[in-house]
């Protein structure tokens, strides 16, 4: 379990990193916290020719409120986000989800940006970014652009970032006061990737749900938000009947695959159970 030979470049600035990426194209990979990439390199599932280490770009590690957004620098570690009072105050969904992201030592080094760019289908944070209408700020040789989470996560291990682009910032929509939200995970070991996770948020306006965001991890290769389930709740109160309707819509819309830990029926059972749980919990939080 040793990587094949590679060239190592330590980037001294974002521009420096972009220049290295531009020079080496598809042969280069960015190294942030290394918690997925290094393991893949050690098993030779990834064999980049050039590794561009952005680990020392400390100016990409920050958390700040920026108008309606909570901006988090791409190199902010998971534990920094998890422990941030600002995140808890403005995007409690992120904090709650992070309680189940990875193990402590991985969270010490792994970064939010690295996690999102890896886009592992079993990872919680891409779903969280989708639920929070996040914008991802990309910088490349062509300048800076912002991509909505819905467009950024293209497919399993695949994002909209170009080969010469670096994710610099994640801008989560700040959750409104009194918003209902919940995030639930079923994994066998705490901190492992979820078998199924579910998250939702909505505003309660005159007793009905507005701006519903509802989605899953583990419900299908590229499935995050589930429109049919969101539609089933939009404009509806949360009660036994709507919960059942939403869960039914979710179960009907997802497409989970069997893996060594769980059969399809089990994942569907979890989509059902977690749909009910997140709705109840979100409703109990909403005012």
């Amino acid at each position: 379990m040793k990587p094949s030979a590679f060239e190592y470049v330590r980037a001294t600035s974002v521009d420096d990193a972009i220049s290295a990426l531009s020079q080496h194209g598809d042969e280069a990979r960015l190294l942030a916290g290394g918690q997925s990439l290094i393991a893949m390199m050690n098993t030779r599932l990834a064999e980049p020719k050039v590794l561009v280490d952005i680990g020392r770009l400390s100016d990409l590690s920050y958390i700040r409120v920026d108008g309606d957004a909570l901006s988090i620098g791409a190199l902010t570690t998971h534990n920094t986000v998890l422990q941030s009072a600002e995140v808890a105050a403005h995007c409690p969904l992120v904090s709650a989800a992070y309680a189940n992201v990875a193990h402590h030592t991985v969270r010490n080094r792994g970064t939010l940006g690295g996690n999102l760019c890896h886009n592992d289908p079993a990872s919680e944070m891409p779903l969280v970014a989708s639920l929070l209408d996040a914008e991802l700020v990309l910088r490349g040789s062509g300048g800076e652009r912002r991509v909505a989470a819905e467009d950024f996560f293209v497919d399993t291990f695949h994002t909209a970032a170009h080969a010469d682009e670096i994710l610099t910032e994640i801008r989560f929509a700040r959750q409104g006061a009194g918003e209902g939200w919940a995030f639930e995970v079923v994994s066998q070991l705490k901190g492992d990737y979820a078998i199924v996770a579910a998250g939702c948020r909505f505003a309660m306006v005159d007793g009905v749900c507005r701006g519903v965001r509802l989605g899953f991890v583990g419900a299908g290769p590229a499935i995050k938000r589930v429109a049919a389930a969101e539609t089933a709740l939009e404009g509806q109160p949360v009660n036994g009947a709507t919960i059942a309707a939403v869960a039914e819509a979710a179960v009907g819309a997802v497409d989970p695959h069997a893996d060594m830990h769980a059969d399809v029926q089990y994942k569907l059972d979890l989509v059902q159970a977690l749909s009910e749980r997140v709705l109840k919990q979100a409703a109990s939080r909403a005012v």
Binding site: T43, H103, Q188, L189, K190, G191, D192, M260, H261
Partner: peptide, 28 residues
């Protein structure tokens, strides 16, 4: 509750890492 070497019908060990072979941690 957790551990089992999972071989497929072709004799491939599908969980030859601690990512997939689950050993309980202090949390479990």
């Amino acid at each position: 509750l957790y551990e089992e070497y999972k071989y497929d019908a072709n004799g491939q060990l599908q969980n030859a890492s601690f990512m997939d072979y689950l050993v309980p941690t202090a949390h479990e």
